[in-house]
């Protein structure tokens, strides 16, 4: 009786090991079924999802115009103080003074990509970009100015 149990345990143990080995052996000979991305090599074909949140960017059109009115809604919405907007008074052709953005400072090092600023923006001036390789050698390079030099507010955006 004891011997039967003893050999039964050995049989069950070896069977369980072989079941596992059969599966791992299958994948050993079918390496393509385990999906791994060879990341730095596939940079050319790698496409991130449209909604992927990599960094905040401000799209400019062909005339170097953006849609940011400087309302600072994103600055208020940001939980970390990532965005700082410096505004200036600009004299319009008709002589009136109007508030325009001077610099749109974005601290990438503080950003958690929570998307709250993009949701808060009333004029769709900022969107999330799909870039994700943000490593730099100096942390000062992570402080970015989003509006391009010489850019203006787009016509019809208030």
């Amino acid at each position: 009786m004891f011997l039967k149990e003893y050999f039964g345990t050995i049989y069950k143990a070896s069977k369980s090991l072989l079941t596992g080995m059969k599966l791992t052996g299958y994948y050993f000979f079918h390496p393509k079924e385990i999906q791994t991305h060879e990341y730095p090599d596939n940079r050319g074909t790698l496409k991130m999802a449209d909604r992927f949140r990599g960094e905040v960017i401000m799209p400019h059109d062909a005339n170097n115009e953006h849609r940011c009115t400087g309302c600072q809604a994103c600055e208020i919405a940001c939980p970390n103080g990532t965005i700082k907007i410096i505004t200036k008074q600009e004299i319009q052709p008709d002589g009136k003074k109007k508030k325009r953005i001077d610099t749109f400072v974005y601290h990438l090092e503080l950003c958690t990509m929570c998307n709250l600023c993009v949701v808060a923006c009333p004029s769709d001036a900022i969107v999330m970009g799909q870039t994700f390789e943000h490593s730099v050698y100096d942390k000062k390079q992570l402080k970015k100015v989003l509006n391009k030099p010489g850019s203006k507010l787009m016509e019809g955006v208030e």
Binding site: I34, Q35, A49, R51, F52, R53, M113, N115, L116, M128
Partner: peptide, 25 residues
Amino acid sequence: FYAFREREAIMSIMEETCGARLTQN
């Protein structure tokens, strides 16, 4: 590795709809 094969598929769904893989908000 077997676990991460299935998990990766779920993570790409998250990435597609929520915009992030882990900290979706």
